[in-house]
């Protein structure tokens, strides 16, 4: 009792002296500088890895040009929201492929985090005096920035393949408006950001659980492929229901389905509220789990020994 009284009285004096000479750069401007620095590093690193950029772009384009062209004849897509008319399979699959870019990118950054942790770059990040939850969230947002960059390059190529977003024009003041095809690129942005955040948080949590670098093959087999194929990315859910009710239920439980739908609707200037709610909920859940896993006192790293624990 007396102890707590003492500390309450002493608190202002101590904290003022405590923050002392370095206080000015630890305030809001410091947070902003830190956030900007982390995102800037992710983007810079990505731009320097040309092979990564190319493969990230080629993968969805191969799907679009080859897979979709073949499926076009086999699979008719009937009128389902958000579409108001029959659409070509290419148009249907494009949001799914954008989701694929986000998914791959998040898992790749999870890989880089396992790798980072081994080389110590993750430790460099975590030794920063800013709160760890802030650092980890900034790191995820850096990954999202990279993923969105890729998604937009992909959508630009798709535009020349005559795949256009279906969003109505966005009215601006003074009678101006963002015209039809371009409006969709703006309305899809929040969906991309939120989806990237959710997948990035999931990947970050996984990075704290996976120990070895080699396990990325396992991540491919057990996370990326099931998530991608058991979703509405490649075929509409009613189609899946016709062939397998069980698979349909799995797809409905897969958060990636809602990522794809959120992007699909956003691309067409609409909001799918169910998807928005699911993606938001999963983001909070995964982010919480990731921050917990990296928490120095409660998390998994202390118990498992963390990087370089052998010595």
């Amino acid at each position: 009792m007396s102890r707590s009284t003492t500390s309450t009285v002493a608190a202002p004096a101590v904290s003022a002296a405590d923050v002392g000479p370095t206080s000015d750069h630890m305030r809001l401007a410091g947070y902003w500088a830190c956030f900007r620095g982390i995102v800037w590093r992710e983007v810079l690193r990505f731009l320097h890895q040309r092979e990564r950029f190319l493969s990230a772009l080629v993968r969805p384009l191969v799907w679009l040009f080859i897979f979709a062209a073949g499926f076009r004849q086999v699979l008719g897509v009937s009128i389902i929201p958000p579409y108001q008319s029959y659409v070509l399979y290419e148009t249907f699959v494009t949001p799914g492929l954008v989701g694929m870019i986000l998914l791959f990118n998040a898992m790749q950054s999870s890989l880089s985090m396992v790798y980072d942790r081994e080389t110590g770059a993750m430790r460099t990040l975590l030794v920063s005096p800013f709160p760890r939850s802030f650092l980890l969230t900034s790191k995820i947002i850096g990954g999202v920035a990279v993923a969105m960059l890729q998604a937009y390059v992909f959508l630009a190529v798709a535009y020349y393949w005559e795949i256009e977003p279906g969003a109505p024009p966005i009215p601006l003041p003074f009678g101006f408006a963002i015209p039809h095809p371009f409006a969709g690129y703006i309305t899809v942005a929040p969906a991309l950001f939120l989806s990237g955040l959710m997948l990035g948080a999931l990947a970050l949590f996984m990075s704290s659980v996976i120990r070895q670098l080699e396990n990325f093959a396992g991540v491919m087999n057990f996370v990326i492929f099931p998530m991608f194929f058991a979703s509405s990315a490649l075929y509409p859910l009613w189609r899946i229901k016709e062939s397998s009710p069980l698979l349909y239920e799995i797809c409905r439980l897969n958060p990636f389905t809602y990522v794809v739908e959120l992007i699909r609707f956003g691309y067409h200037g609409q909001v799918d509220w169910v998807s928005l709610a699911v993606v938001l909920g999963c983001t909070v859940l995964f982010l919480g789990a990731a921050i917990y896993a990296y928490n120095p006192s409660k998390g998994l790293i202390g118990r498992r020994g963390g990087p370089g624990a052998g010595a």
Binding site: M26, G30, C34, W40, P129
Partner: peptide, 18 residues
């Protein structure tokens, strides 16, 4: 892949410096 100065700038940012 980054230059010396870019590496240092990143670290400065981690300490809230800009």
């Amino acid at each position: 892949d980054l230059t010396l100065i870019q590496n240092l700038q990143y670290h400065a940012a981690l300490h809230g410096l800009s």
